[in-house]
Design a protein around this nucleic acid. Sequence first.
RNA 1: UCCCCUGUAGCUCAGUCGGUAGAGCAGGUGGCUGUUAACCACCCUGUCGGCGGUUCAAAUCCGUCCGGGGGAGCCA
Length: 462
Amino acid sequence: MNDRISQLLKRAPGPGPVVAEGWVRTKRESKTVCFLELNDGSCLKGLQVVVDLDTFADATILARITTGAAVACTGELTASPGGNQDVELKASSITLHGEAPADTYPLQKKRHSLEYLREIAHLRARTNTMGAVARVRHAVSYAVHSYFNEKGFYYVHTPIISTSDAEGAGEMFQVTTFDLDNIPRTEEGVIDYDQDFFGRKASLTVSGQLEGETYALALKNIYTFGPTFRAENSNTKRHLSEFWMIEPEMSFCTLEGDMAIAEEFLKYVFSYVLEHCAEDMAFFSQWVEKGVAETLRSVVEKPFVHMTYTDAIVELEKNNDKFDFPVKWGSDLQTEHERYLTEQVCKGPVIVTDYPKEIKAFYMKLNEDGKTVRAMDVLVPRLGEIIGGSERESRLEVLTERMTSLGLDPADYWWYLDLRRYGSVPHAGFGLGFDRAIQYITGMQNIRDVIPYPRAAKQADF
RNA sequence: UCCCCUGUAGCUCAGUCGGUAGAGCAGGUGGCUGUUAACCACCCUGUCGGCGGUUCAAAUCCGUCCGGGGGAGCCA
């Protein structure tokens, strides 16, 4: 395989032929010389290919090379007299692999709106912004695995198809092999799931947490990293129907340990990206969200602010006149409140803990006061919640009672409750929305532009 | 799902008081001694989102449907 353009750009000029392969971003011509800017996705910057029209053998090929064409250029790497690059490729021959007729190719050598690019999602990876997002997304994925591996966590593949009837985390996509025009029904007229593929109602997972806990209570520290599905008809710039989630789960761990890991983990990932995607981060800082790289750096350097829900309410109540929806103890924090806490009160990420049990899930550990649970949300400026986690209720009786009072049937969760029956231990975990993390890191405004092919209500093209 | 905004050339948009449409970029042609968001000149480009209504006359006003964006809820 030939060198990537990122490698060629770092090389010193010298004799001997090299080959550069990629897609043409722009072509600039004058009487005696023609410049191609070649990009292969390995970095933001392109390689300048120089064609001397007086000596180049096959000048006719140049007419067919336009923005978007795929070419392989052979030549010598020389020092560039131009100001924007150290080296350039003096081409002796060019192979044109695929043309991109300029009158129909949807990408022009100009800036396009992100909305337009979504309509040509199959080509948008060839743009600066989407290329940078793709590289950062890769780097963050790598850093996630790297962090957990270094900390001795095991990567667990929890199921995509779930048969837990009532996970309670929102609407689910049903999975069935039924002929929808002819669904089997019992004599009572109820859908007969006995005849369905799994012999029961099945859906796409909304969380790998419950299954993750079972492995944490065997391997001590585990994490999941996979796709998650929510059938909510939500139409916002930070929701997707299909998104990726990271869910660590730690045994012999309380909420304090959970928060410590969450903070250390985020900082590790941010540092990794700042170090390994410096060029892309500079691009985001300049064109997408002013100063986003500097913000990330300051987040890495400062300890996160901690605050109980009760204290947060006290802080917010001082400014209730500024909110569309005033808060009082017991109310859920809305977007405007989360943003006020992070952007005005704390000026950075904040971890809010010990929420009222009424607004949190059944599996969270009940506090001594009987009113709050050991939950924690990591809130960040601009986005709000990026991590939601908790210490899990490890006491069988308390957990069963909580489920019952919420109208859940403990029998449906027999295997989950077995974890409390046999070898139960304090344990905790959290969920990080991967795509939201990418949004936070890059400064991209819409979550649909940080995932290659976004799925949302009425949107599943490509 | 609710509220607000929006849909005009390939793209980004302007279009006044209702009188059948315009700019920049892209594209084409020519020019230009090394350009880098190349530059200069000229040229081409339209079912004004769809359907219906009001009117002598609709891009413009009204209704409706569809697409896009923003906000809210829900959450990650």
